[in-house]
């Protein structure tokens, strides 16, 4: 029988090695799997490469993982936020390596890993510092930059509903990187607020099919949180 439901976060996180690349879902605070990040802190893996759109808010979640000194490198598109002081301090003191990636390239490089694509040519960033020394090519008169996949050893994803096959739905804009990160990792751990019987989820609306998911853990629903936003001009 297939049963991907883990009894606890600690069970789901067991065996994550030092040096792992961990893809962490979320944009700002929407979809950040804080419970799993806390579990990773408890689990103890270090020298991690973390992939997330941002670089943590305040003192909790990803910021707490950074503060605990467990991250060697972060790959993200927008580390600087109103309350990203943990990252700022580590980066400025040279204790944390940063690979800055345009957001669409970040998503597509992750998707490519999940889809088994070896590399792809993308127009984003052509002629800019962020294209670095990578190969370029003109296709149908338009310039492109060669981009390589970002694969994860582990993905930590916050979802809404799941079943024992690992099928998932998400909630609103908290979906963001979850589906592509789930595809791109050796092992994907998702939290859900509700576990339902097989067949209870409408197959037309399952967003991440269970093939991409290794473990699901039920967590309590807490109020959604603000963090790191800029006021409009």
């Amino acid at each position: 029988m297939i049963n991907k439901i883990a009894g606890s976060i600690a069970d789901a996180m067991a065996g994550i090695p030092d040096g792992a690349t961990v893809l962490i879902g979320g944009f700002g605070t929407a979809g950040i799997p804080n419970e799993l990040i806390d579990g990773l802190i408890e689990q103890g893996a270090k020298e991690l490469t973390v992939v997330n759109n941002n670089a943590g808010n305040g003192d909790t979640g990803l910021a707490a993982l950074l503060k605990a000194g467990r991250v060697r490198k972060i790959i993200c598109s927008f580390p600087r936020q109103a309350d990203s002081y943990v990252f700022d301090e580590l980066y400025r003191s040279g204790k944390l390596e940063l690979e800055l990636v345009p957001q669409g390239n970040l998503a597509e490089r992750i998707r490519a890993a999940g889809a088994g694509v070896g590399a792809f040519f993308c127009p984003t960033g052509y002629g800019t510092q962020l294209a670095g020394e990578r190969e370029t090519r003109v296709i149908d008169g338009k310039p492109y930059v060669l981009e390589y996949p970002i694969r994860g050893d582990v993905a930590l994803v916050k979802a809404e509903q799941g079943d024992r096959w690992g099928n998932l739905t998400y909630r609103k804009a908290a979906r963001n990187f979850g589906p592509v990160m789930a595809m791109a990792s050796e092992r994907t751990i998702a939290t859900v607020h509700e576990i339902v019987e097989l067949g209870a989820m409408d197959p037309e609306t399952i967003v991440t099919p269970g093939i991409f998911v290794s473990k699901i853990v039920k967590i309590d629903r807490v109020a959604t949180q603000a963090g790191g936003f800029k006021k409009a001009a």
Partner: peptide, 21 residues
Amino acid sequence: WSTGEEGAIPAVGGAMDLAIG
């Protein structure tokens, strides 16, 4: 996306994808 200022924390977000897309 950047003023190229020494010591500033770089952040690009979706600007490059939007601009050319």
